[in-house]
Design a protein around this nucleic acid. Structure first.
Lengths: 357, 357
DNA sequence: TGCGATTTTGAGAGCGCTCTCACAATCATA
DNA sequence: TATGATTGTGAGAGCGCTCTCAAAATCGCA
């Protein structure tokens, strides 16, 4: 296959319903062999201009489309990529992270003329069914696994064992031999907390993400690193594990309150929102009594009361890079695993106190 | 194919990486013919118990998985469903509607052993590529189109012309010959507005959805119907078209303010949130000065200030029903189009004023 | 034990495409 | 014009499975 942009993507849709045509039919009507039609269809060179045109005309008139299954069988390429969103992802599926990720992935697949197959694994049984389907040949050329959660390691291992090209989105727990793309969570959290330190905050708490996830772990590391570098001494009372939900942030903040923090870094915006709700209910003013920094830059972060200072991560971009890495792996064979780390950006709004007069 | 729950979904994953096996290989090792292995693999009856066991053993040992492309080619069934989220959907992709819809769809596909292929169409070019890919044989057994937007009618028409089994999610503009499943938007809006009337509100405004969408249109109809039935006379100054975004709701509310509404029905929660923000900035108290009802019941609706009264729609359930209808159509052939309408539920919280002492 | 009915098994013809290989046609060069 | 290199075209063997049809094995019952 020489050129991924195929003629039928340019061709106008045929209005009338056509009987199922085969290469053979086109060949007969154009007075050439099956091989020649195949060459035209696949944009191969070595077809004389007039023959090519004759074949294209017949194709145009008849509204012929090649059969996907037959091509896949003969060429051993399905032009389909799988995207697996595991159990952990399923639960927090209302997080705008996923739509954005999927948007980047779907768009990139489309650009490269790949079809995207989506697998949401909800439970153990799903996982069984899905791994069987994925490891089956002739369906997928490669797989993207959104992960970073502890429970997803098995699936990743299976794909490695099956020798299926794979790129993980999010840092996996064990990442020998696996390519992945992740945002730089450690640095992002480091920058967020450093920013709070520069505001003169003394008692900086954190509502971490789930510590079964590498994102949760890494963001906590960044928090600790920032405090450590500035000589703050560790206070366990200022650290609590959240679960990436609004309610989780709310309750986490409530239990943080007795330790009298004057700032909090939440590992997600929805948790930050929950934390602000708890603070508000406790009569604390944000940012005067409590500075808050979130993570994600979800849409409502800009319009919350007060607008939320947060970390913006390039989610779509992450998806794009993952697809590109996967396609590269498919086309050029297995290579040393690549670890792609995406930069983040601190978006300063009002909740951190930096904009006060 | 007698039974959709296939043996390989039950079978344990083979640890070692196996060479690509074919039916032929299994047949040879088990000392039977290809046909017999095929029968075992597909759970056909008419295979003696001992032979079946012998074959299953070999399959188990070798870790054989049938080739998807070969089956599709031979059986003319791909066991894959397409989900198309058109242009309009793409833009408002942060709406939690989509994740929930996809969850229902993906889960149901998995339950029925179908693979789900996702197509996000972002622009004209995408649409060309995607329609070509969809109408190609051998890739999809049927297609779900999330629609209800004016611009999506072309795609639906193409699929009808191509004779591909299809179920539309959301009421299409022209729905002759197309099956669809939609929530009862008219009634939902009717109930929401009737609820406001019962609270004694006199000047009830609406921030409608995009009127290029049937959802926007139908919700506005419900609003008008409720007012009409109670003898309220139409005041154009109380009606404004929104765009389903927070900012849209905010500006819409601002332009509604001069007309002095004492209640507003917003066609989506995010718009309701925007409206409340505008009201707050204008010094209006919700619900005392302005009662607000939204639509969707997104997660933050429960924790907004004040908590938002809204319409809960069975989004996942809608996806489930759509998949089931599509599979039915695939298995039992084209039938008279079905129109499935889902009920909604009014969730009363504080923003409508019903819970005041 | 024999004969028809039933069940189990195998042979083989596709499904619609790709791709190698050989042959035919064209070209450049001497 | 002869010769080899190059380009254009066709024949045909798969790819791995399904499914029909017929043969073989088994069964029921007289």
């Amino acid at each position: 296959m020489q050129n991924h942009e195929m003629w039928w993507e340019r061709c106008q849709f045929q209005e009338q319903m056509v009987p199922d045509l085969t290469l053979e039919d086109i060949a007969r009507q154009a007075g050439v062999s099956r091989s020649t039609v195949s060459r035209v269809v696949n944009n191969f060179p070595n077809v004389s201009a007039d023959v090519r045109q004759r074949v294209l005309d017949v194709i145009q008139q008849t509204g012929y489309h090649p059969n996907a299954a037959a091509r896949t069988l003969a060429s051993q390429r399905s032009w389909t990529l799988g995207l697996v969103l595991p159990q952990s992802a399923h639960q927090i599926f209302t997080d705008p992270y996923y739509p954005h990720l999927m948007k980047g992935i779907a768009q990139t697949c489309n650009d490269h003329n790949f079809t995207l197959a989506l697998f949401l694994v909800g439970n153990e049984e799903d996982e069984r069914k899905i791994s069987a389907r994925i490891t089956r040949k002739g369906l997928l050329d490669g797989v993207l696994v959104q992960s970073g959660h502890h429970g997803d390691q098995q699936l990743i291992g299976r794909l490695v064992d099956a020798g299926i090209p794979q790129v993980v989105i999010g840092r996996p727990f064990r990442y020998d031999n696996v390519s992945y793309v992740d945002v730089d969570n450690v640095n992002a959290a480091f920058n967020a907390v450093t920013h709070l330190i520069r505001q003169g905050r003394q008692r900086i708490a954190t509502i971490s993400g789930l510590l079964q996830s590498t994102a949760g772990l890494d963001r906590k590391s960044g928090y600790l690193k920032a405090l450590g570098e500035r000589g703050y001494k560790l206070d366990e009372a200022l650290i609590i594990e959240g679960d990436f939900t609004e309610a989780g942030g709310y309750y986490a903040m409530q239990s943080l309150l007795p330790a009298h923090p004057d700032a909090v870094f939440a590992a997600s915006d929805v948790m930050a929102l929950g934390a602000m709700r708890a603070a508000r209910e406790a009569g604390l003013s944000v940012p005067d009594d409590l500075a808050v920094v979130g993570f994600d830059d979800i849409p409502i972060a800009a319009t919350s009361e007060p607008p939320l200072t947060t970390i913006r991560q390039p989610v779509s971009q992450t998806g794009i890079r993952a697809v590109e890495a996967l396609i590269d792996q498919i086309e050029n064979g297995i290579q040393p695993p690549r670890h792609i780390i995406m930069d983040t950006q601190l978006v300063i709004r009002d909740s951190c106190g930096a904009n006060r007069k």
